[in-house]
Amino acid sequence: MTDARFEDGAERPLRLVALAPDDLPVISALVQDAVFTAADLRWSRKGRRVDVLLNRFRWEDRAAAERAGRPYERVRAVLTVQDVTGLAAQGVVPGDKDTVLSVLALEFTPGADGTGVLVVVLAGDGALRMEVECVNLMLSDVTRPYRAPSGKAPHHPEG
């Protein structure tokens, strides 16, 4: 058995699950530079679930696009976090459909007995802070890839 590679995804939609803190770096890397608005965020307190509809840059396709000389792509994806017992936001106005938020990373701080805090770090000092009973996330592509509107890959200068 070998580890999965980005190339293994080809043109199929991603559907990844994280059930342990060690699973989070892969999903964090794939949602880096994803954009959404607060109107794309849903929290079901009763269902203990947070869903975020993202426009995700297809990092897994970047090298292939460069080799083939074709445009970079984005895809609509849903990031679902289960077993959420609390949600707090910084720099996010609930329901705001005009402000574009950009994901930098997912970070997890463990608590007692598998609980912890999952933070969706956003550009511009924003964040979504979720208290969770356990790590239980899913990232699912829900549309076909489309040409990235900027035509460019996101770039992060080293500081």
Rank of each mutant, 00 (worst) to 15 (best):
T109F: 05
D33T: 05
E7A: 15
D3Y: 12
R144C: 00
D113A: 15
A4T: 11
P21H: 05
V52L: 14
L101I: 08
Y146N: 01
D83Y: 00
I27Y: 04
F57Y: 15
P157D: 12
G47H: 09
G95K: 07
P94K: 14
D61K: 13
D40G: 02
A112G: 03
K46W: 09
D83I: 01
R129M: 05
A20F: 12
R12A: 12
L14T: 04
A34G: 09
V142W: 00
V119E: 15
K152I: 00
A112K: 11
V84C: 02
L101M: 08
T109P: 00
V135E: 07
T109C: 03
P25D: 09
D83F: 10
A34S: 15
T85C: 01
D61A: 15
L16C: 05
E60H: 13
I27L: 15
D141F: 01
L118P: 06
V50R: 02
T99N: 05
S28Q: 02
L14P: 01
V52G: 07
W43H: 15
P71K: 14
R129A: 11
H155I: 06
V93W: 06
D8Y: 07
R5I: 12
A112P: 02
L137G: 02
P157L: 06
Q90D: 14
V31G: 08
K97C: 13
G116Q: 07
R5Q: 14
V31D: 05
V117Y: 00
A88N: 12
L87T: 02
L79Y: 01
L79K: 10
D51P: 10
K46F: 09
L79P: 02
H156T: 11
M130Y: 00
A77I: 03
A10E: 12
L137K: 00
A105H: 06
K97T: 10
A105C: 08
D33S: 15
D40L: 02
R42I: 03
L24W: 12
K46R: 06
P94N: 09
T2Q: 12
K46C: 04
V119R: 13
T80C: 04
F36R: 00
A89V: 13
F36E: 01
A153Q: 04
